[in-house]
Design a protein around this nucleic acid. Sequence first.
DNA 1: CGGTTTTCCGAACGCTGTCAGGATTATCGC
DNA 2: GCGATAATCCTGACAGCGTTCGGAAAACCG
Lengths: 209, 209
Amino acid sequence: MTSTIPADTGRRDRRRDRHDATKREILDAAWQMVRADGLNALSLRALARAVDMEPQSLYTYFASKHAVYDHLFADGNHELLTRFEQIEISDDPHQALCTIARLFVTFAAEDQARYELLFQRTIPDFEPSPESYAVATEVFSRGRSVLTAAGLGDDADFDLWTALVAGLASQQLANDPGGDRYIRLIDAAVAMFAEHVFGKVVPNPDTKA
Amino acid sequence: MTSTIPADTGRRDRRRDRHDATKREILDAAWQMVRADGLNALSLRALARAVDMEPQSLYTYFASKHAVYDHLFADGNHELLTRFEQIEISDDPHQALCTIARLFVTFAAEDQARYELLFQRTIPDFEPSPESYAVATEVFSRGRSVLTAAGLGDDADFDLWTALVAGLASQQLANDPGGDRYIRLIDAAVAMFAEHVFGKVVPNPDTKA
DNA sequence: CGGTTTTCCGAACGCTGTCAGGATTATCGC
DNA sequence: GCGATAATCCTGACAGCGTTCGGAAAACCG
Protein backbone atom coordinates (compact mmCIF):
# COMPACT_ATOMS: atom_id res chain seq x y z
CA MET A 1 0.00 0.00 0.00
CA THR A 2 2.32 2.74 1.27
CA SER A 3 5.30 2.88 -1.05
CA THR A 4 8.63 3.57 0.69
CA ILE A 5 10.00 5.26 -2.40
CA PRO A 6 9.31 9.00 -2.48
CA ALA A 7 8.99 9.23 -6.22
CA ASP A 8 9.30 12.56 -8.02
CA THR A 9 5.80 12.27 -9.37
CA GLY A 10 4.45 11.35 -5.98
CA ARG A 11 3.86 14.83 -4.70
CA ARG A 12 0.63 15.82 -6.27
CA ASP A 13 -0.54 12.26 -6.01
CA ARG A 14 -0.50 12.23 -2.25
CA ARG A 15 -3.56 14.36 -2.07
CA ARG A 16 -5.28 12.14 -4.54
CA ASP A 17 -4.28 9.10 -2.53
CA ARG A 18 -5.76 10.58 0.60
CA HIS A 19 -8.86 11.47 -1.34
CA ASP A 20 -9.25 7.94 -2.64
CA ALA A 21 -8.56 6.45 0.76
CA THR A 22 -11.35 8.48 2.30
CA LYS A 23 -13.61 7.52 -0.57
CA ARG A 24 -12.82 3.88 0.11
CA GLU A 25 -13.54 4.36 3.79
CA ILE A 26 -16.92 5.87 3.04
CA LEU A 27 -17.80 3.07 0.65
CA ASP A 28 -16.83 0.44 3.20
CA ALA A 29 -19.06 2.08 5.76
CA ALA A 30 -21.83 2.22 3.18
CA TRP A 31 -21.49 -1.50 2.48
CA GLN A 32 -21.73 -2.20 6.16
CA MET A 33 -24.87 -0.12 6.44
CA VAL A 34 -26.72 -1.52 3.45
CA ARG A 35 -25.86 -5.01 4.56
CA ALA A 36 -27.32 -4.30 7.99
CA ASP A 37 -30.39 -2.23 7.16
CA GLY A 38 -31.12 -2.87 3.52
CA LEU A 39 -30.20 -1.10 0.33
CA ASN A 40 -32.93 1.49 0.40
CA ALA A 41 -32.40 2.32 4.05
CA LEU A 42 -29.06 3.98 3.38
CA SER A 43 -29.04 7.61 4.48
CA LEU A 44 -26.31 10.11 3.77
CA ARG A 45 -26.69 11.59 7.21
CA ALA A 46 -26.20 8.23 8.89
CA LEU A 47 -23.36 7.44 6.53
CA ALA A 48 -21.65 10.70 7.40
CA ARG A 49 -22.10 9.93 11.08
CA ALA A 50 -20.42 6.56 10.55
CA VAL A 51 -17.31 8.14 9.05
CA ASP A 52 -17.39 11.07 11.46
CA MET A 53 -18.29 13.81 9.06
CA GLU A 54 -21.02 16.29 8.42
CA PRO A 55 -23.40 15.10 5.73
CA GLN A 56 -22.38 17.89 3.37
CA SER A 57 -18.75 16.83 3.44
CA LEU A 58 -19.66 13.64 1.63
CA TYR A 59 -20.26 15.76 -1.42
CA THR A 60 -16.52 16.34 -1.61
CA TYR A 61 -16.19 12.68 -2.54
CA PHE A 62 -19.48 11.84 -4.20
CA ALA A 63 -21.62 14.09 -6.33
CA SER A 64 -24.81 12.60 -4.99
CA LYS A 65 -26.33 9.66 -3.16
CA HIS A 66 -26.75 7.95 -6.50
CA ALA A 67 -23.01 8.33 -7.06
CA VAL A 68 -22.44 6.38 -3.85
CA TYR A 69 -24.74 3.66 -5.12
CA ASP A 70 -22.91 3.77 -8.42
CA HIS A 71 -19.56 3.09 -6.77
CA LEU A 72 -21.08 0.28 -4.74
CA PHE A 73 -22.45 -1.09 -8.00
CA ALA A 74 -18.99 -1.03 -9.54
CA ASP A 75 -17.52 -2.54 -6.37
CA GLY A 76 -19.87 -5.48 -6.50
CA ASN A 77 -19.25 -6.14 -10.15
CA HIS A 78 -15.50 -5.94 -9.66
CA GLU A 79 -15.76 -8.48 -6.89
CA LEU A 80 -17.74 -10.82 -9.12
CA LEU A 81 -15.28 -10.28 -11.95
CA THR A 82 -12.38 -11.14 -9.66
CA ARG A 83 -14.03 -14.39 -8.71
CA PHE A 84 -14.51 -15.21 -12.34
CA GLU A 85 -10.81 -14.72 -12.94
CA GLN A 86 -9.75 -16.72 -9.93
CA ILE A 87 -11.86 -19.72 -10.72
CA GLU A 88 -10.81 -22.57 -12.95
CA ILE A 89 -13.22 -23.60 -15.67
CA SER A 90 -13.23 -27.26 -16.59
CA ASP A 91 -13.05 -28.46 -20.17
CA ASP A 92 -16.05 -30.64 -19.54
CA PRO A 93 -19.08 -28.53 -20.51
CA HIS A 94 -21.29 -29.92 -17.78
CA GLN A 95 -18.66 -29.32 -15.16
CA ALA A 96 -18.04 -25.83 -16.44
CA LEU A 97 -21.72 -24.98 -16.20
CA CYS A 98 -21.86 -26.30 -12.65
CA THR A 99 -18.88 -24.21 -11.63
CA ILE A 100 -20.20 -21.00 -13.09
CA ALA A 101 -23.70 -21.53 -11.74
CA ARG A 102 -22.41 -22.23 -8.28
CA LEU A 103 -20.15 -19.20 -8.47
CA PHE A 104 -22.99 -16.92 -9.34
CA VAL A 105 -25.65 -18.25 -7.01
CA THR A 106 -23.39 -18.32 -3.97
CA PHE A 107 -22.18 -14.83 -4.80
CA ALA A 108 -25.76 -13.67 -4.95
CA ALA A 109 -26.76 -15.47 -1.78
CA GLU A 110 -23.93 -13.93 0.21
CA ASP A 111 -25.30 -10.44 0.22
CA GLN A 112 -28.92 -9.53 -0.36
CA ALA A 113 -28.25 -5.81 -0.65
CA ARG A 114 -25.50 -6.34 -3.19
CA TYR A 115 -27.74 -8.63 -5.21
CA GLU A 116 -30.51 -6.05 -5.28
CA LEU A 117 -28.09 -3.35 -6.33
CA LEU A 118 -26.44 -5.36 -9.08
CA PHE A 119 -29.30 -7.34 -10.51
CA GLN A 120 -32.54 -5.68 -9.54
CA ARG A 121 -33.86 -2.19 -9.88
CA THR A 122 -34.54 -1.58 -6.22
CA ILE A 123 -33.48 2.04 -6.05
CA PRO A 124 -36.04 4.37 -7.63
CA ASP A 125 -34.08 6.25 -10.27
CA PHE A 126 -30.67 4.68 -10.06
CA GLU A 127 -28.89 3.93 -13.29
CA PRO A 128 -25.25 2.90 -13.30
CA SER A 129 -22.80 5.24 -14.95
CA PRO A 130 -21.19 4.10 -18.21
CA GLU A 131 -17.94 3.30 -16.40
CA SER A 132 -19.69 1.16 -13.79
CA TYR A 133 -21.90 -0.43 -16.36
CA ALA A 134 -18.85 -1.39 -18.36
CA VAL A 135 -17.72 -3.60 -15.48
CA ALA A 136 -21.11 -5.25 -15.40
CA THR A 137 -20.93 -5.84 -19.13
CA GLU A 138 -17.49 -7.38 -18.75
CA VAL A 139 -18.84 -9.79 -16.14
CA PHE A 140 -21.71 -10.63 -18.42
CA SER A 141 -19.51 -11.36 -21.40
CA ARG A 142 -17.21 -13.53 -19.30
CA GLY A 143 -20.19 -15.62 -18.32
CA ARG A 144 -21.36 -15.76 -21.87
CA SER A 145 -17.96 -16.87 -23.17
CA VAL A 146 -17.98 -19.78 -20.76
CA LEU A 147 -21.30 -20.80 -22.21
CA THR A 148 -20.09 -20.57 -25.80
CA ALA A 149 -16.97 -22.49 -24.88
CA ALA A 150 -19.31 -25.18 -23.59
CA GLY A 151 -20.86 -25.29 -27.04
CA LEU A 152 -23.85 -23.07 -26.42
CA GLY A 153 -23.93 -20.30 -28.97
CA ASP A 154 -27.68 -19.97 -29.23
CA ASP A 155 -29.17 -16.79 -27.79
CA ALA A 156 -32.29 -18.51 -26.58
CA ASP A 157 -30.23 -21.12 -24.78
CA PHE A 158 -28.23 -18.43 -23.09
CA ASP A 159 -31.34 -16.55 -22.03
CA LEU A 160 -32.79 -19.75 -20.65
CA TRP A 161 -29.56 -20.31 -18.78
CA THR A 162 -29.50 -16.88 -17.20
CA ALA A 163 -33.16 -17.22 -16.26
CA LEU A 164 -32.48 -20.52 -14.57
CA VAL A 165 -29.49 -19.29 -12.61
CA ALA A 166 -31.09 -15.96 -11.74
CA GLY A 167 -34.18 -17.84 -10.59
CA LEU A 168 -32.20 -20.00 -8.22
CA ALA A 169 -30.44 -16.95 -6.82
CA SER A 170 -33.54 -14.86 -6.36
CA GLN A 171 -35.51 -17.69 -4.78
CA GLN A 172 -32.64 -18.47 -2.44
CA LEU A 173 -32.60 -14.90 -1.22
CA ALA A 174 -36.35 -14.50 -1.10
CA ASN A 175 -37.37 -17.79 0.51
CA ASP A 176 -34.37 -19.06 2.41
CA PRO A 177 -31.90 -16.25 3.12
CA GLY A 178 -28.82 -17.57 4.79
CA GLY A 179 -29.72 -21.17 4.00
CA ASP A 180 -29.02 -23.47 1.09
CA ARG A 181 -32.43 -24.70 0.02
CA TYR A 182 -31.92 -23.58 -3.57
CA ILE A 183 -28.15 -23.66 -3.60
CA ARG A 184 -28.26 -27.42 -3.24
CA LEU A 185 -30.46 -27.60 -6.32
CA ILE A 186 -27.75 -26.16 -8.53
CA ASP A 187 -26.37 -29.49 -9.71
CA ALA A 188 -29.82 -30.79 -10.50
CA ALA A 189 -30.68 -27.59 -12.33
CA VAL A 190 -27.52 -27.71 -14.37
CA ALA A 191 -28.12 -31.36 -15.16
CA MET A 192 -31.62 -30.50 -16.31
CA PHE A 193 -30.30 -27.72 -18.49
CA ALA A 194 -27.52 -29.86 -19.90
CA GLU A 195 -29.90 -32.66 -20.75
CA HIS A 196 -32.02 -30.18 -22.59
CA VAL A 197 -29.41 -28.33 -24.63
CA PHE A 198 -26.98 -31.18 -25.22
CA GLY A 199 -29.84 -33.44 -26.15
CA LYS A 200 -28.37 -36.41 -24.33
CA VAL A 201 -28.60 -37.50 -20.74
CA VAL A 202 -25.21 -36.95 -19.20
CA PRO A 203 -24.36 -39.38 -16.42
CA ASN A 204 -24.11 -37.35 -13.23
CA PRO A 205 -23.82 -39.13 -9.88
CA ASP A 206 -24.46 -35.93 -7.90
CA THR A 207 -28.03 -35.46 -8.99
CA LYS A 208 -29.24 -38.78 -7.66
CA ALA A 209 -31.78 -38.29 -4.89
CA MET B 1 -74.05 0.06 -7.47
CA THR B 2 -76.79 2.12 -5.81
CA SER B 3 -79.38 -0.28 -4.48
CA THR B 4 -82.94 0.99 -4.75
CA ILE B 5 -84.01 -1.05 -1.75
CA PRO B 6 -83.55 0.80 1.54
CA ALA B 7 -82.91 -2.29 3.62
CA ASP B 8 -83.33 -2.18 7.38
CA THR B 9 -79.77 -3.27 7.98
CA GLY B 10 -78.48 -0.80 5.44
CA ARG B 11 -78.29 2.21 7.71
CA ARG B 12 -75.08 1.80 9.57
CA ASP B 13 -73.53 0.11 6.55
CA ARG B 14 -73.80 3.16 4.36
CA ARG B 15 -71.00 4.85 6.18
CA ARG B 16 -68.89 1.80 5.85
CA ASP B 17 -69.68 1.60 2.16
CA ARG B 18 -68.61 5.16 1.63
CA HIS B 19 -65.51 4.48 3.66
CA ASP B 20 -64.60 1.45 1.58
CA ALA B 21 -65.33 3.25 -1.65
CA THR B 22 -62.92 6.03 -0.76
CA LYS B 23 -60.37 3.45 0.27
CA ARG B 24 -60.75 1.80 -3.10
CA GLU B 25 -60.36 5.13 -4.82
CA ILE B 26 -57.15 5.84 -2.95
CA LEU B 27 -55.75 2.42 -3.76
CA ASP B 28 -56.56 2.82 -7.44
CA ALA B 29 -54.75 6.13 -7.48
CA ALA B 30 -51.84 4.48 -5.68
CA TRP B 31 -51.66 1.72 -8.30
CA GLN B 32 -51.59 4.32 -11.00
CA MET B 33 -48.77 6.17 -9.31
CA VAL B 34 -46.54 3.18 -8.56
CA ARG B 35 -47.03 1.97 -12.11
CA ALA B 36 -45.92 5.33 -13.43
CA ASP B 37 -43.09 6.26 -11.09
CA GLY B 38 -42.03 3.03 -9.43
CA LEU B 39 -42.96 1.36 -6.19
CA ASN B 40 -40.59 3.26 -3.97
CA ALA B 41 -41.47 6.62 -5.47
CA LEU B 42 -44.93 6.61 -3.93
CA SER B 43 -45.48 9.60 -1.68
CA LEU B 44 -48.45 10.12 0.60
CA ARG B 45 -48.54 13.79 -0.23
CA ALA B 46 -48.69 13.13 -3.95
CA LEU B 47 -51.24 10.40 -3.35
CA ALA B 48 -53.39 12.77 -1.34
CA ARG B 49 -53.13 15.34 -4.09
CA ALA B 50 -54.33 12.74 -6.58
CA VAL B 51 -57.50 12.04 -4.60
CA ASP B 52 -57.95 15.68 -3.65
CA MET B 53 -57.23 15.43 0.03
CA GLU B 54 -54.79 16.72 2.57
CA PRO B 55 -52.07 14.17 3.26
CA GLN B 56 -53.17 13.72 6.86
CA SER B 57 -56.67 12.73 5.83
CA LEU B 58 -55.30 9.55 4.33
CA TYR B 59 -54.74 8.36 7.86
CA THR B 60 -58.49 8.07 8.22
CA TYR B 61 -58.30 5.17 5.79
CA PHE B 62 -54.83 3.77 6.28
CA ALA B 63 -52.85 3.63 9.48
CA SER B 64 -49.57 4.28 7.69
CA LYS B 65 -47.87 4.24 4.33
CA HIS B 66 -47.00 0.60 4.91
CA ALA B 67 -50.70 -0.09 5.32
CA VAL B 68 -51.26 1.29 1.83
CA TYR B 69 -48.56 -1.02 0.52
CA ASP B 70 -50.15 -3.85 2.43
CA HIS B 71 -53.50 -3.33 0.71
CA LEU B 72 -51.78 -3.11 -2.66
CA PHE B 73 -50.04 -6.36 -1.79
CA ALA B 74 -53.37 -8.01 -1.04
CA ASP B 75 -54.84 -6.51 -4.21
CA GLY B 76 -52.14 -7.99 -6.37
CA ASN B 77 -52.44 -11.42 -4.82
CA HIS B 78 -56.20 -11.37 -5.16
CA GLU B 79 -55.81 -10.56 -8.83
CA LEU B 80 -53.42 -13.46 -9.30
CA LEU B 81 -55.73 -15.74 -7.37
CA THR B 82 -58.64 -14.75 -9.58
CA ARG B 83 -56.66 -15.63 -12.68
CA PHE B 84 -55.86 -18.98 -11.19
CA GLU B 85 -59.53 -19.63 -10.67
CA GLN B 86 -60.55 -18.48 -14.12
CA ILE B 87 -58.04 -20.56 -15.97
CA GLU B 88 -58.59 -24.13 -17.07
CA ILE B 89 -55.90 -26.62 -16.19
CA SER B 90 -55.38 -29.46 -18.63
CA ASP B 91 -55.18 -33.08 -17.55
CA ASP B 92 -51.99 -33.43 -19.50
CA PRO B 93 -49.16 -32.65 -17.05
CA HIS B 94 -46.98 -30.94 -19.61
CA GLN B 95 -49.86 -28.81 -20.81
CA ALA B 96 -50.81 -27.94 -17.25
CA LEU B 97 -47.28 -26.80 -16.49
CA CYS B 98 -47.22 -24.64 -19.59
CA THR B 99 -50.47 -23.00 -18.66
CA ILE B 100 -49.48 -22.19 -15.13
CA ALA B 101 -46.03 -20.96 -16.13
CA ARG B 102 -47.45 -18.71 -18.78
CA LEU B 103 -50.05 -17.43 -16.35
CA PHE B 104 -47.45 -16.48 -13.80
CA VAL B 105 -44.82 -15.02 -16.08
CA THR B 106 -47.24 -12.87 -18.03
CA PHE B 107 -48.82 -11.70 -14.80
CA ALA B 108 -45.40 -10.71 -13.54
CA ALA B 109 -44.38 -9.05 -16.79
CA GLU B 110 -47.52 -6.92 -16.87
CA ASP B 111 -46.59 -4.73 -13.97
CA GLN B 112 -43.09 -4.22 -12.66
CA ALA B 113 -44.19 -2.40 -9.53
CA ARG B 114 -46.68 -5.10 -8.65
CA TYR B 115 -44.05 -7.77 -9.19
CA GLU B 116 -41.63 -5.99 -6.88
CA LEU B 117 -44.29 -5.60 -4.25
CA LEU B 118 -45.50 -9.18 -4.37
CA PHE B 119 -42.32 -11.11 -4.97
CA GLN B 120 -39.38 -8.97 -3.98
CA ARG B 121 -38.49 -7.05 -0.88
CA THR B 122 -38.14 -3.68 -2.46
CA ILE B 123 -39.64 -1.59 0.30
CA PRO B 124 -37.29 -1.21 3.27
CA ASP B 125 -39.30 -2.49 6.21
CA PHE B 126 -42.48 -3.66 4.61
CA GLU B 127 -43.93 -6.93 5.76
CA PRO B 128 -47.40 -8.00 4.70
CA SER B 129 -50.01 -8.31 7.40
CA PRO B 130 -51.24 -11.80 8.29
CA GLU B 131 -54.48 -11.21 6.37
CA SER B 132 -52.67 -10.11 3.24
CA TYR B 133 -50.09 -12.83 3.58
CA ALA B 134 -52.87 -15.39 3.80
CA VAL B 135 -53.91 -14.48 0.25
CA ALA B 136 -50.34 -14.93 -0.93
CA THR B 137 -50.20 -18.31 0.76
CA GLU B 138 -53.43 -19.31 -0.92
CA VAL B 139 -51.99 -18.42 -4.31
CA PHE B 140 -48.90 -20.40 -3.50
CA SER B 141 -50.78 -23.52 -2.49
CA ARG B 142 -52.93 -23.33 -5.62
CA GLY B 143 -49.79 -23.36 -7.70
CA ARG B 144 -48.39 -26.18 -5.68
CA SER B 145 -51.54 -28.28 -6.04
CA VAL B 146 -51.34 -27.99 -9.81
CA LEU B 147 -47.82 -29.35 -9.60
CA THR B 148 -48.81 -32.26 -7.41
CA ALA B 149 -51.72 -33.00 -9.71
CA ALA B 150 -49.15 -33.19 -12.49
CA GLY B 151 -47.40 -35.87 -10.50
CA LEU B 152 -44.74 -33.74 -8.85
CA GLY B 153 -44.85 -34.23 -5.12
CA ASP B 154 -41.17 -33.83 -4.46
CA ASP B 155 -40.17 -30.67 -2.62
CA ALA B 156 -36.94 -30.27 -4.55
CA ASP B 157 -38.80 -30.56 -7.85
CA PHE B 158 -41.21 -27.89 -6.76
CA ASP B 159 -38.42 -25.58 -5.67
CA LEU B 160 -36.69 -26.10 -8.99
CA TRP B 161 -39.94 -25.30 -10.72
CA THR B 162 -40.51 -22.07 -8.82
CA ALA B 163 -36.92 -21.05 -9.42
CA LEU B 164 -37.29 -21.62 -13.14
CA VAL B 165 -40.54 -19.70 -13.44
CA ALA B 166 -39.40 -16.90 -11.15
CA GLY B 167 -36.19 -16.66 -13.14
CA LEU B 168 -38.05 -16.19 -16.40
CA ALA B 169 -40.25 -13.54 -14.84
CA SER B 170 -37.45 -11.59 -13.20
CA GLN B 171 -35.26 -11.69 -16.30
CA GLN B 172 -38.15 -10.59 -18.47
CA LEU B 173 -38.71 -7.56 -16.27
CA ALA B 174 -35.04 -6.78 -15.79
CA ASN B 175 -33.74 -7.22 -19.32
CA ASP B 176 -36.67 -6.76 -21.65
CA PRO B 177 -39.49 -4.88 -19.93
CA GLY B 178 -42.50 -4.65 -22.17
CA GLY B 179 -41.10 -7.22 -24.58
CA ASP B 180 -41.36 -11.00 -24.80
CA ARG B 181 -37.75 -12.14 -24.96
CA TYR B 182 -38.18 -14.49 -22.01
CA ILE B 183 -41.90 -15.03 -22.30
CA ARG B 184 -41.34 -16.84 -25.55
CA LEU B 185 -38.95 -19.19 -23.79
CA ILE B 186 -41.67 -20.50 -21.51
CA ASP B 187 -42.56 -23.52 -23.62
CA ALA B 188 -38.92 -24.49 -24.01
CA ALA B 189 -38.35 -24.04 -20.28
CA VAL B 190 -41.35 -26.16 -19.39
CA ALA B 191 -40.24 -28.80 -21.87
CA MET B 192 -36.82 -28.81 -20.28
CA PHE B 193 -38.32 -29.17 -16.85
CA ALA B 194 -40.74 -31.88 -17.96
CA GLU B 195 -37.96 -33.88 -19.59
CA HIS B 196 -36.06 -33.69 -16.37
CA VAL B 197 -38.73 -34.63 -13.86
CA PHE B 198 -40.75 -37.03 -15.98
CA GLY B 199 -37.57 -38.74 -17.07
CA LYS B 200 -38.55 -39.07 -20.70
CA VAL B 201 -37.70 -36.87 -23.64
CA VAL B 202 -40.89 -35.28 -24.88
CA PRO B 203 -40.81 -34.44 -28.57
CA ASN B 204 -40.58 -30.68 -28.83
CA PRO B 205 -39.80 -29.04 -32.16
CA ASP B 206 -39.27 -25.61 -30.61
CA THR B 207 -36.01 -26.34 -28.87
CA LYS B 208 -34.14 -27.31 -32.02
CA ALA B 209 -31.41 -24.83 -32.91
C1' DC C 1 6.38 32.15 4.58
C1' DG C 2 2.60 33.49 0.95
C1' DG C 3 -0.56 31.62 -2.28
C1' DT C 4 -3.48 27.96 -3.87
C1' DT C 5 -6.28 24.15 -3.62
C1' DT C 6 -8.79 20.94 -1.05
C1' DT C 7 -11.66 19.85 2.63
C1' DC C 8 -15.05 20.81 5.93
C1' DC C 9 -19.00 22.82 8.19
C1' DG C 10 -23.10 26.19 9.48
C1' DA C 11 -27.32 27.54 7.53
C1' DA C 12 -31.01 26.78 4.79
C1' DC C 13 -34.60 24.91 1.11
C1' DG C 14 -38.05 21.76 -0.15
C1' DC C 15 -39.32 17.34 0.40
C1' DT C 16 -40.83 13.14 3.27
C1' DG C 17 -43.99 10.26 6.88
C1' DT C 18 -46.44 11.13 10.88
C1' DC C 19 -48.84 13.02 15.18
C1' DA C 20 -52.01 16.14 17.98
C1' DG C 21 -56.09 19.08 18.31
C1' DG C 22 -59.76 21.35 16.66
C1' DA C 23 -63.25 22.32 13.14
C1' DT C 24 -66.48 20.52 9.89
C1' DT C 25 -69.57 17.29 8.25
C1' DA C 26 -72.47 13.33 8.04
C1' DT C 27 -75.20 10.09 10.43
C1' DC C 28 -77.94 8.40 14.32
C1' DG C 29 -81.76 8.01 17.94
C1' DC C 30 -85.68 10.43 19.09
C1' DG D 1 -86.60 18.33 12.52
C1' DC D 2 -83.34 18.43 16.74
C1' DG D 3 -79.66 17.35 19.66
C1' DA D 4 -76.11 13.91 20.25
C1' DT D 5 -72.59 11.20 18.24
C1' DA D 6 -69.38 9.65 15.37
C1' DA D 7 -66.64 9.97 11.21
C1' DT D 8 -64.01 12.88 8.39
C1' DC D 9 -61.07 16.63 7.31
C1' DC D 10 -57.74 20.30 7.88
C1' DT D 11 -54.22 23.52 10.37
C1' DG D 12 -49.93 23.31 12.44
C1' DA D 13 -45.97 21.15 13.62
C1' DC D 14 -41.86 17.76 14.30
C1' DA D 15 -37.97 15.12 12.89
C1' DG D 16 -35.72 13.32 9.18
C1' DC D 17 -34.24 13.25 4.25
C1' DG D 18 -31.01 14.80 -0.09
C1' DT D 19 -29.04 18.77 -1.54
C1' DT D 20 -27.03 23.67 -2.29
C1' DC D 21 -24.50 27.87 -1.00
C1' DG D 22 -20.86 30.52 1.07
C1' DG D 23 -17.37 31.00 3.99
C1' DA D 24 -14.00 29.09 7.35
C1' DA D 25 -10.32 25.90 8.17
C1' DA D 26 -6.73 23.02 6.76
C1' DA D 27 -3.47 20.94 3.81
C1' DC D 28 -0.37 21.41 0.26
C1' DC D 29 2.72 23.89 -3.02
C1' DG D 30 6.75 26.69 -4.45
